[in-house]
Amino acid sequence: MSHALAGAFAYPGRLEPGLSGIVGEADDLAENPLLTLVRTGIENDFEEVAFSMHPSLRTVKRELAGSGPEAAIFAGLSGSGSALFGLYASEDDALRAQQRVQASGTKAVVTKTLSRHGYWHTMFAE
């Protein structure tokens, strides 16, 4: 059983990030199927390779993850490493993460996720 899954059921309330960089509420696993999969141990295996070749990426991921009540729900490497990203509970948490990352000299952009409907509406809006 993954450390993230075991931790999710062992502690009530907000969790500290595990090996995957995942934190969150113990009772919200069913709210988002993708986060449920990630929390149960699905990670980007390329991180091990990329971080060993470029240790500064691990540092940026830690800055994105943060700690305490404003920590990221998840922080990780996208796909084959085109970007590092964090998912946050609030825009304020995301803005604080942006400040942490930029303070070390790395560009950071705050964006918002879209629902599937919102995505398609935006893509084909006239």
Rank of each mutant, 00 (worst) to 15 (best):
D28I: 06
D28K: 15
L29Q: 10
A30L: 11
E31L: 14
E31Y: 11
E31N: 15
E31Q: 15
N32I: 02
P33F: 02
P33K: 08
T36Y: 14
T36L: 13
L37Q: 12
L37I: 02
L37S: 03
V38W: 08
R39W: 05
R39I: 01
R39F: 08
I42V: 06
I42P: 01
I42F: 09
I42Q: 02
E43K: 08
E43H: 10
E43I: 11
E43L: 10
N44S: 11
N44C: 11
D45M: 07
D45T: 06
D45E: 15
D45K: 07
D45R: 08
F46V: 06
F46G: 09
F46P: 05
F46C: 08
E47Y: 13
E47L: 09
E47D: 09
E48C: 09
E48P: 03
E48N: 13
V49T: 04
A50I: 00
A50G: 01
A50D: 01
F51D: 13
F51Q: 12
F51N: 03
F51E: 13
F51Y: 13
S52N: 05
S52C: 06
S52I: 05
S52V: 00
S52L: 07
M53V: 15
H54G: 01
H54P: 04
H54Y: 06
H54M: 10
S56I: 08
S56T: 07
L57K: 06
L57W: 08
L57Q: 08
R58N: 10
T59Q: 15
T59E: 13
T59A: 13
V60P: 08
V60Q: 11
V60M: 10
K61W: 04
K61Y: 05
K61F: 00
K61Q: 12
R62W: 04
R62T: 07
R62C: 03
E63D: 09
E63C: 14
E63K: 10
L64W: 01
L64C: 05
L64A: 07
A65N: 07
A65E: 02
A65F: 04
A65L: 05
A65W: 02
A65V: 12
G66T: 07
G66S: 12
G66C: 11
G66D: 09
S67T: 10
S67V: 02
S67W: 09
S67D: 07
G68Q: 04
P69S: 06
E70S: 05
A71M: 01
A72P: 07
A72R: 01
A72V: 02
I73Y: 07
I73T: 05
I73V: 15
I73Q: 12
F74V: 01
F74D: 01
F74P: 04
